[in-house]
Design a protein around this nucleic acid. Sequence first.
DNA 1: TCAAAAGTGTTTCTCGTACACCCATGT
DNA 2: ACATGGGTGTACGAGAAACACTTTTGA
Lengths: 238, 238
Amino acid sequence: MDDFIAAYRESVARYARPSLTVDLAIFTVLDSDLKVLLVERAEPPFAGAWALPGGFVRVGDAFDDQGESLEDAARRELVEETHLELQHAWLEQVGAFGDPGRDPRMRIISVAYTALVRPTLAPLVRGGSDAAQARWVSLTELPDLAFDHAAILERARKHLAGRLADSGIAFELVPETFTVAELRAVWTAILGADLDPGNFRRRFRRLVDDGVVEEAPGRRVTPTKPAAVWRFVGDRHG
Amino acid sequence: MDDFIAAYRESVARYARPSLTVDLAIFTVLDSDLKVLLVERAEPPFAGAWALPGGFVRVGDAFDDQGESLEDAARRELVEETHLELQHAWLEQVGAFGDPGRDPRMRIISVAYTALVRPTLAPLVRGGSDAAQARWVSLTELPDLAFDHAAILERARKHLAGRLADSGIAFELVPETFTVAELRAVWTAILGADLDPGNFRRRFRRLVDDGVVEEAPGRRVTPTKPAAVWRFVGDRHG
DNA sequence: TCAAAAGTGTTTCTCGTACACCCATGT
DNA sequence: ACATGGGTGTACGAGAAACACTTTTGA
């Protein structure tokens, strides 16, 4: 069997190989507005331009160590680029982007991931070592992005919107306890469209009936009538 | 600028590169049953086992030629593996699969695509040159698959089901002209659940009202009451 | 005339949408 | 007391689901 493997490594080696990266569309919601984490590139190509954080995947060819998985690479980059404890943050693959010419240096395949960061943690991101700076940018005021990152970001945003209704991702973007209005703000930010407060409340009540959320002690301090506070029940990765 | 590129090709070359393939989940509907095209592997690893058709992506590092795009590679494999004129078949990316160890030879990243073949063409597939044989296999009687192709196939099937309602893919799996019952058979095959004939007919009528389908001349020859025949209007890639 | 499938109608329930309205509270 | 946002009620319509029913054909 090892003979076969050795022989085939030889034969397969004839095919040229691309470089492999992961790029991350890391979202949060601040001020009822969907924002994405961008880094300013310090080095060419596209030095000085804004880009999605990302990096090369650690790849090996040893029989017993072929390197890290794509998702592990994405999580590693997520932690490195934010300097936060986000090992358990929600993260999902968006797809592969590999058009020739997308990186002028060489053929690079990028596997894109989307991740979510709680707004309570969002202000604490410090930026990675290899990037000049990192910044939360509203999707409504995006600068020109390096490479094909504008396309990646657009696909990531659609991916997120598509998963909103049938997964618990909205709960990833509110504090541990939250009000109905706060959750609705997340939905409107992701969908980019207003939702009727009354109708949203009814959907919310269904979640309560199903045991998905439960009332939490305490109330929000507000300049007006204080809203009830709720908590998400169960693992957030529905 | 070329200096930069040269310098960075050098620096980036430090990162090991994986091999890159595309794998295809090619579906059709035969006898009201969703089937996928499998090939019997002629060579190790997994010689003799069934697998999804696929192959290496042509990758280059020349400044002016970085090789073919992922989708081009998928289309090329689609034609090569079926020996049919399917350059314009419906085809969509499912995602990237790159777990270490998924191929025992070496680190290989596979970008999975789903494609659809019209049932009228399905019996004509001859199989690729590198595979022992190709066969349409019902999803209900799948053999063990090579590599992680079982996982890829499952994701592809879900991708298909998710796109059924909001895209015109069902029309890709019926002849140019079709009856309501034939289209319903495609839906039930993809969803794996029965649909009420009456309710489906009403949904269908809505499509007629919206101008998505129109009546076509002729009737089906059947042993019983002949059904009206319809035609899809507009480009099929909604 | 009979089976089989095409095609229609009806009833019920759920859910989205729009919108009016009451209620509680901090200022 | 009053503005503000929390929270409730209602009415309409689209559409899913279940199912009975009529119609049209070939055998």
